[in-house]
Design a protein around this nucleic acid. Structure first.
Lengths: 140, 140
DNA sequence: ATTCTTGCAAACCCTTTGCAAGCTA
DNA sequence: TAGCTTGCAAAGGGTTTGCAAGAAT
């Protein structure tokens, strides 16, 4: 962790902000704001739900946290190792996630879009499945 | 259109149901329930918003309509030509959409997931861009 | 006549905002 | 002290549900 990552941008250091960042750092799974909030409270860290949302937003804006939307509308957050472009392989049971690099996908999307005359292309790719742990435990 | 597609499952034929189906058939673009509702009203077809949602849900359940969620939470619907598995290349300006088949993507996701020990794999892949028409017109 | 469908209003659920009180620097 | 941060309560926004009135068969 280099010097500038501690404080990438302005913002005071607060108990709540640190708690949210710490809670995110603790897990490998994509987590909802509400879950994070519940977890903090269980651990005795009293932080308002609103505040959790606000810190998550800041972290996302800074590129320190990835965000994705579940089919039911809930937004999930996760602290990823790379800030570089990547995709996710997410366990739909426990949320555990593996970061995936897919050069061939990048090439494919670009090619397909160009073939249809589309420009300013971006894409959204996520893989869902059941991780080995959940399968072994017979979960869901 | 074969005989069974007219009435794939039970359900009465109503003015509203037909209107929703017709409105969907009219366009190539992914459309929100609210937009569809507004369009119907503009065309003099009075249909309640609730009813629009209900018919869309039925069509999705039947596999006659594809559904995707926008980043802001809105759900978009589109009548696709194939009911077979496919992806979409969506114009983020006008919504116009091209159906894409991606055998290599299917293989890639399967391979990546297997390598990480995941089973029951599914994926979600959408490409966004600006279509030639919107680019030419200088839209957004 | 019976049962499904409609649609208004209210409920839902997650997320965001208003604003006064609390902290950080 | 100055001004960012917090958090409660309330508002927002899309979608769903309760229920009585209205169609379709």
């Amino acid at each position: 962790m280099n010097a500038e990552s501690v404080h990438t941008s302005r913002g005071r250091s607060t108990r709540q902000g640190n708690a949210v960042a710490a809670a995110l750092a603790e897990t490998d799974a994509f987590t909802s704001a509400q879950d994070l909030h519940a977890r903090l409270r269980r651990n005795g860290e009293s932080v308002g739900l609103t505040t959790v949302y606000r810190h998550l937003q800041v972290l996302v804006d800074r590129g320190e946290v990835d965000m994705l939307r579940r089919t039911d509308g809930e937004t999930l957050y996760r602290r990823c190792a790379t800030s570089a472009h990547h995709h996710h392989l997410v366990c739909r049971v426990c949320g555990r996630t593996v970061e995936i690099a897919g050069p061939e996908i990048e090439a494919w999307t670009t090619r397909v879009a160009a073939a249809e005359g589309f420009s300013d292309v971006s894409h959204q790719v996520e893989i869902y499945g059941r991780c080995a742990g959940c399968a072994a435990a017979g979960r869901a």
